[in-house]
Amino acid sequence: MLKIENLIVEAENKKIIDGLDLVLPAGETHVLMGANGSGKTTLGLGLMGSPEYLVNGSIKIDDQDLIKASADQRALAGLFLGFQHPQEIPGLNFRHFLRTSVNNVRRFRNQPTYSVFEFSKLIKKTAVSLGIDASMVDRNLNQDCSGGEKKKNELLQLLLSEPKFAIIDECDSGLDVDAIKVMTKVLKRLKSQGVGILLITHYERLINSLDIERSYLMTQGKILKSGHGKDLAKATLEFGYVS
């Protein structure tokens, strides 16, 4: 279970998240919506441990509090953030990067690490199963990639990192139809593996195609409304962010 209590996220003495509580059980998918500037992206970054923000409160995975942990420690503990705008790292081979990342997580969990050969096979197989062009993994991390390609890179990372809880930030990232299909596949697969997902989105197609246990409406750094299933999300899509 991912349990967030009284979360406060500040930047330049301004509270962007102001006392947020949220509980995400393993294997559930929750949707978070909110108007621009309501703090959705900051929530993701704050939860992941971005050094840009001052964060207080508690963020617990199965009773382990991560509030003081660095970003890499949070990742090792099982937290994953799917970035709205993933970084480009020139010259860093995607496959090499991802093997480093995945092996770090596996080592932390006392699982056997992948050899270069094993990982190459795994990554190609995974890419093919999602309908992602397997030659992507030979490129440099997000370098010269289109928005859709970056998104697919994020999804490959998400799947292969085997997180316990994933926060997926898609507020205004311009997902194309193809990327939405891949994302639906990945999120369904993760759910079946017991991964808890907090999906920040306003894509109706995505919401319609997923089983969603809970929806939230966020405003001014707080959860204003929440409800079972996807009714609240669908109502928000239909009527806008009315309070």
Binding site: P51, D72, R74, A75, Q87, G91, F97, S101, N140
Partner: peptide
């Protein structure tokens, strides 16, 4: 932001810097 991105994938700060630097000289 690049260091944070790599760290969010379970890579330590030193390892992240070294990956970025090695990419720079690729």
């Amino acid at each position: 932001d690049k260091i944070f991105y790599l760290m969010s994938r379970g890579i330590s700060e030193i390892e992240a810097i070294s990956l970025i630097v090695n990419g720079f000289i690729d």
